[in-house]
Design a protein around this nucleic acid. Structure first.
Lengths: 149, 149
DNA sequence: TGGCAAGTAAAGCCAGGGCTACACTTCTGT
DNA sequence: ACAGAAGTGTAGCCCTGGCTTTACTTGCCA
């Protein structure tokens, strides 16, 4: 097991996985902000910087910076002193994120994690769940729901 | 549902979860490096900066910086031009990380994720799995293994 | 033993994501 | 109608974690 030729854990050719993990983390924040803005628009009709900031637990300049990134990425639009709105692309992202979050929480609960813990952990986990894994989660949930009946 | 007093998704009191996710990510890199150094020591008897760098997929200076952080945190020691070694604390951390990684991969596989995908996703996921969730994973795995028999 | 390759370190750059402090709009209430 | 409060924007700073370049050790080998 201390053999670096071992095929299941060959270490000499693994940097990609770390790179992928790093890249995933790079978009994580954007996803959170997009989702949050979507929530706010749905609830209040608009998303104000101050509201975004307080919900994200950051100061407003930080929120402003994040929104600037979203705008740069074409996910949001805003006019000075007006609310922030999602583009079509941004709204689609928010929807995807929301759905994924729900799936992750459901899966955690399905394998026995307490709901509160599941909600908390999902916030960090969800950004690293690949599409393939998400599909597997959905299948598993569908199956275990069927088994329950 | 546009009511911000709703208890299941009360948004005005949720910043902590984001803060927790951010904090988790802060130690993620350290964990990866500690684990990698542990692997290298086990395999080659010592961990050289160059080896660490190539396995992590970064340049040497980046690895040097990371090792400096590990030393600052009391997880590793090193002397110039000699290898890097883990302190007791660092070794314990590496073991925990390794065990957690295995559990996460196993759980993913257990719910139907292909092994290769599981390995890849686990790298990002593992750092966000709380102790409580990890326990739940272990229980689930124990149960499903028993069911298999 | 002298020189060169490999390993290591240090410095300086970038971007991201926090922060505080301060300036400026917008809104609101008298 | 205007002043002050609330909201927003901007500047400048810190730290992390990448990067490249450059300089210095070390150690090995001819």
């Amino acid at each position: 097991m201390t053999n670096d030729q071992d095929q299941t854990s060959n270490p000499t050719a693994q940097p990609e996985r770390f790179n992928q993990a790093r890249a995933a983390q790079a978009v994580a924040i954007l996803e959170d902000y997009a989702e949050m803005i979507g929530d706010l628009i749905e609830e209040m009709g608009e998303a104000r910087i101050t509201d975004i900031a307080s919900r994200m637990g950051v100061t407003h300049p930080t929120a402003t910076k994040a929104v600037a990134r979203l705008k740069r990425e074409g996910l949001a639009v805003s006019r000075p002193y007006r609310g922030v709105f999602l583009t079509e692309e941004g709204a689609a992202l928010a929807d995807r994120v929301r759905a994924r979050h729900r799936t992750v929480v459901d899966l955690l609960v399905a394998v026995g994690v307490p709901l509160a813990t599941a909600e908390l952990d999902a916030e960090g986990l969800e950004h690293h769940v690949s599409d393939a894994t998400l599909e597997a989660f959905d299948s598993f949930l569908a199956k275990s729901r069927k088994d329950q009946d």
